[in-house]
Amino acid sequence: MNGSTSSQKHPLDGLLRTDRIPHIWCPGCGIGTVFSSSLIAIRSTGAEPMKTAVVSGIGCTGRGAGYVNLDSYHTTHGRAIPFATGMKLANPELSVVVFSGDGDLFAIGGNHFIHAARRNMDLTVICVNNLNYGMTGGQAAATTPYLAKTSTTPLGNPEAPFNLPLLAYACGATYIARWTMLHTRDLTQSITEALTRTGFSFIEVLAPCPTGYGRKNKLKASDLLKVYQEKAIVKNGANPAETILDLEQGITLGKFVEYDRPTFAQNYKAVTSD
């Protein structure tokens, strides 16, 4: 007999720590959608769930590790990638996914990102970019647009943001894509590709932070979604140097880079097995 409760089950319940729901993410936040896409992708690979580990840093996105019903590690601020590096090298059978935010991965953790990309460490790094530090109340990040208002740039951001796909490309990442949380089908496809290939894969996902970034810049969640829809320029294979992320000029989306070169582990084995 199927009662009414079974019809309320979410198809992803098996991959969720349902006893930890409700989650902390605000109404209008885009992280949940990216999280769902990631779980759908993990499921679609057909790999045994027990062979996937999720590692997060600190921040709103960093809480993702706490909701996924897989081996999951919520580490220190900025250090998800080196933690994941140790984990992957100690057990190469694991598929290790780093799920974290722009502040975590590119400001405090920027040094680890560039070196893991350079090593072509076999990790899948999913970065939810909400253009600011959400958890602490909307401060400027390394991704905040020039002149945007945040709680630490009340007169406008004097700094220029990173273009993350270009940074990843320059550092040696072998798979690079950028989507918004509106482009769930493409996003899920990219995450699936990243999970099933070997090498350092980087996926940036734009997601609104209505509580932090949105409020300071007079953008409701729906306003930002409209920007994502209207300004999106899907350009698969685009040269990362020519991609832009400008809420007025346009946002280049797509799978920009995919090529093979030996990973750290492959090279280490080759060099040390004489």
Partner: peptide
């Protein structure tokens, strides 16, 4: 990162 990596390795 060295300290983070040895924790990750130990967890594996």
């Amino acid at each position: 990162s060295a300290m983070a990596a040895i924790l990750g390795a130990s967890c594996a």
